[in-house]
């Protein structure tokens, strides 16, 4: 396994790009491509990464870059890889799509490529909203979050749906490799990218990538916020290899989700009741991920009493 020290000095995503200061996407792209190396060709669908990574005639990529549209990462990777194989070239076709481009508009194309088990690497840079268009809700937006399409109004406050479980959707395609990553966990990050690089077939790396303006937070806290996300259970680090799920990092005692939320302006409006709802969702996820079979529930934060009755929201979260 490569350690940080052994990483290449090659700057395959050069400085001078125009991402916002502290951009979690830029951070993840730089390190992913650093591990993947020069023999990669990259497809980037419509996203911030197209704009800050290339603005004609400039580009940050030092590997081949292709872009056409928003919803077609899976398909474009398929086409690239087919051409490379036909021409006998050893190239890793890598896609860097956002959450909107993966959870929502690009889901079909991604699913097609996954189902066909195309020999490509699909990377989802999940910053939990449509950031390039100015922070609109996507299927990856967490419960309670402010976005410009889930504003904090007098009647409705923030996003009312819970983050879509993309991991299970992707893994259900029975692909060779699915993994979640966080830039705040460098060794885990490097190991998973390296692993994905060396597996054949459809690999999916799901990266948690904070967005400074979208999450309304201090640019210095990009890494810190991903750590808190993991410690609170809002983001979990695991991998599914040939159907086998493995937790790759298990936090110690669960931290309250509130610690994570309070770092970010997008959650600051949340009522105690909404925070509890989100905490319940996290608890369920926590138990799902970290609890050994047959062991008692390990989530120690009790659900709020008013929700013991089966309400609509309760059903939403727990099923009928």
């Amino acid at each position: 396994m490569i350690t940080i020290k052994e990483l290449s000095d090659d700057n395959l995503f050069t400085a001078g790009h125009t991402a916002c200061p502290g951009c979690g996407v830029a951070m993840s792209i730089r390190n992913a491509i650093r591990v993947l190396g020069k023999d990669a060709a990259v497809y980037v669908p419509a996203s911030c990464a197209v704009v800050f990574g290339t603005t004609f005639p400039y580009g940050a990529w030092k590997v081949p870059f292709f872009h056409t549209a928003f919803e077609n990462t899976g398909a474009c990777l398929t086409g690239m890889q087919a051409a490379f194989e036909k021409k006998g070239k050893q190239v890793i076709s890598v896609g860097f799509a956002g959450d909107g481009g993966t959870y929502d508009i690009g889901l079909q194309s991604m699913s097609g490529a996954a189902e066909r088990n195309e020999d490509v690497l699909y990377i989802c840079l999940d910053n939990e909203a449509y950031m390039n268009t100015g922070i609109q809700r996507s299927g990856g937006t967490p419960f309670g979050a402010w976005t410009t399409t889930t504003p904090v109004g007098t009647k409705i406050q923030g996003n009312r749906r819970f983050k879509k479980n993309l991991g299970d959707i992707v893994a259900a395609h029975e692909i060779p490799y699915y993994a979640t990553l966080s830039i705040g966990h460098p060794l885990d990050f490097i190991r998973k990218v390296e692993k994905a690089k060396n597996i054949r077939g459809f690999r999916f790396l799901h990266m948690f990538t904070p967005c400074i303006p979208g999450w309304k937070m201090d640019p210095a806290k990009t890494v810190e916020v991903t750590k808190r996300a993991v410690e609170s259970g809002m983001w979990t680090l695991y991998e599914v290899e040939n159907g086998e799920k493995k937790i790759t990092y298990k936090p110690g005692k669960m931290k309250s989700v509130k610690d994570y939320l309070m770092m970010q302006g997008r959650f600051r409006h949340m009522s105690e009741e909404d925070i509890k709802k989100l905490q319940m969702w996290v608890c369920r996820k926590w138990n799902l991920h970290y609890k050994e079979k047959g062991a008692p529930q390990i989530c120690e934060i009790a659900p709020p009493e008013e929700h013991h009755a089966v309400t609509e929201e309760h059903r939403e979260m727990h099923g009928p």
Binding site: A41, Y43, F66, T68, A69, E71, N72, G74, A75, C76, L77, T78, G79, M80, A82, A83, F84, E85, K86, K87, Q108, S109, S111, G112, E115, R116
Partner: peptide
């Protein structure tokens, strides 16, 4: 015929794959 025949999941993906393969040097 020695070609990569790709059973795509929609026409949008067909033309996306076509564009990408063409940009990668293939006759599509």
């Amino acid at each position: 015929l020695d070609a990569k025949f790709l059973t795509m999941e929609s026409e949008h993906s067909v033309m996306s794959a076509a564009a990408a393969a063409s940009a990668s040097g293939a006759r599509v």
